[in-house]
Write a protein that binds this DNA or RNA. Structure first.
Lengths: 155, 155
DNA sequence: TGACAATAAGTGTCATAACACTTATAATTC
DNA sequence: GAATTATAAGTGTTATGACACTTATTGTCA
């Protein structure tokens, strides 16, 4: 095995490829930012998954959305949306009712309380975004968003 | 409340600031990439936190590292490192022993088995990085890494 | 039309992450 | 040198996420 030479290379050149460096940076920065978000959402009694559900449902409008649709739109893969929605329904943030026409479906709707909570989060979230990204210029932020979008648009 | 006009603006202009756009993109892309990593590590019986611990310990060399040191170097904030290390010790990937000179300390070392596992993961991880980032040029990846690093270097 | 496939949602179970709290040991200071 | 503070690690409990499996309802087609 004797990996001494390889290890020396690793120490002076910590990344073996631009892709490795990008992946590591993305993991680190992504966690930093999402941890900050988690802390903020927690002040309002939400997990970040719950916050995203609220945003998704607000965007969906009065028709609501089914469980699988919500799951697919969530940022993170999340197998247990049913109970997530149940907890949110208990908290009064969403409402679920079985569709009488297609009794398989149980669309979920955001409630006025859920909308109000989103409104309440709005301003501190903007402040957090300024705190996290305010030292970058709009051009830099635009470039960052472009590159991140490009990463997701893999052929 | 009547947020109709504001909502219309939101629909046509989904992001209210470059910072909001960057944060959302970072969250989405970060999750995409770390989910892919999670799936890979799971094939080897590891969580991504465990993989990072192994990397940290390999980098630390023969002196090992204490629990708090490991916790601070981890990508994600992680309050429960003790039991994480316990599980890894049970799996034979690390070894812990209380320092006789300072009996508060229980430095943790990577074992040959842990090193071998890291080696085994190496090649599929490189392949994954190519799959995730191969469609970007080295210049684009370099720029992405720079910007992500800059985000973390907030004053 | 009756069997079978497809779709939507839900459940049981387990391991783990989160959080607050506690113990053990060493260093400091009066 | 006794009391106090600091440091390192560990523990108890709870809620949640992960995974595989199941149920309920509708659509399809032989």
């Amino acid at each position: 095995m004797a990996p001494t030479i390889r290890d020396e290379i690793k120490q002076t050149r910590p990344f073996r490829s631009p892709a490795e460096e990008a992946m590591t940076n993305l993991a680190r920065t992504g966690r930093l930012v999402s941890d900050a978000g988690d802390l903020l959402f927690k002040e309002f009694g939400l997990s970040s998954a719950q916050y995203n559900v609220l945003r998704i449902l607000r965007g969906a409008g009065p028709d609501g959305l089914g469980r699988n649709e919500i799951r697919d739109r969530l940022i993170t893969r999340m197998p247990d949306v049913t109970r997530l929605l149940e907890r949110m329904a208990e908290a009064g943030l969403v409402r679920r009712e079985r569709d009488p026409d297609d009794r398989r479906c149980v669309p979920t709707y955001i409630t006025p309380k859920g909308l109000a909570l989103l409104d309440q989060i709005d301003s501190p979230l903007t402040a957090l975004q300024q705190r996290l990204f305010g030292h970058l210029s709009p051009e830099q932020l635009g470039m960052l968003s472009e590159l991140l979008t490009l990463v997701r648009k893999r052929p």
